[in-house]
């Protein structure tokens, strides 16, 4: 029986020297970071910086070229079944079966994660994400905002201890995006869920994240609280810093 080691140091995600090379080109290079229980960490950087690649390696669906990923003290590739039952994810790049209803989709994942009381949890999430009116509607009939909320509901289904969210509010209107951010903060407060969050909405990153990891060409070039990172680069907001890094290429240095 594999014993998780989370009480000891409260680190739930531990990434050490993580690298991934595709056809000789480094997509991620020597990335190391830790996430503590109940912490929201933002992974930000321009397109192609390696954010989605890192999340895929954390989920065990992409094999790293080098380095280790430990969730709850366990190597995700060696202990994928026990680890993946305690995490979940949502990504703007994936969807859910269109020919199933909202409730049917959630029931399938409730079984995959072996929920003890699936119907009650499904009802609770449908209510939280304002999806009750669509409960018996086919997914193909949902708006993109409703589909995003359904994917988020799926991601919260198993009360994950670690949640990976790849651009979770990308197709939500400002009202629903704000509600989703509030809901995620509530989930963190109530269930001490650790969240790794990517978004191209810099204001959202500043609001949501306790810490940010700034990626550029597969490397972490800045890490800390949003305030610490901004002050290191002498910028007033993340939007300005993002533009400076994205346009300045490798010549960008912290002031």
């Amino acid at each position: 029986m594999v014993k998780p080691d989370v009480q000891k140091n409260d680190v739930v995600v531990e990434v050490e020297g993580l690298s991934k090379t595709f056809n000789g080109v480094a997509a991620v290079e020597g990335v190391s970071f830790r996430i503590h229980r109940g912490e929201i960490v933002g992974l930000l950087g321009p397109n192609g910086a390696g954010k989605t690649t890192i999340i895929q390696m954390l989920l065990g669906v992409l094999t790293p070229t080098a380095g280790t990923v430990r969730l709850f003290g366990l190597d995700v590739h060696r202990h994928r079944e026990s680890v993946l039952g305690r995490v979940n994810f949502s990504s703007t790049y994936v969807s859910l079966p269109y020919s199933l209803t909202v409730t049917e989709n959630l029931r399938v994942f409730a079984r995959l994660y072996r929920l003890p009381h699936p119907e009650a949890r499904i009802r609770e999430l449908l209510q939280r994400f304002e999806l009750e009116p669509t409960a018996h509607q086919l997914v193909r009939g949902l708006s993109s905002g409703q589909l995003t909320r359904l994917c988020l509901a799926k991601a919260l289904l198993n009360r994950p201890e670690v949640l990976f969210l790849d651009e979770p509010t990308a197709s939500l209107d400002p009202d629903m995006a704000e509600k989703t951010r509030r809901l995620l903060r509530d989930v963190r407060a109530q269930e001490h869920t650790a969240i790794l969050y990517t978004s191209h909405n810099m204001r959202e990153m500043e609001q949501m994240c306790d810490r940010i990891l700034f990626l550029h060409r597969g490397r972490i070039i800045a890490a800390g609280t949003p305030r610490e990172v901004l002050s290191a680069y002498g910028e007033e907001d993340l939007e300005a810093l993002f533009l400076r890094i994205a346009r300045g290429g490798s010549r960008v240095e912290a002031s």
């Binding site: 026990s82 039952g85 994936v94 969807s95 995959l112 799926k154």
Partner: peptide, 18 residues
């Protein structure tokens, strides 16, 4: 193919499903 068409493969294989 149904899973591929509905872009659901990552949801499945990022779960404990083997």
């Amino acid at each position: 193919l149904e899973e591929m068409w509905s872009r659901n493969l990552l949801n499945l294989f990022a779960s404990p499903l083997t």
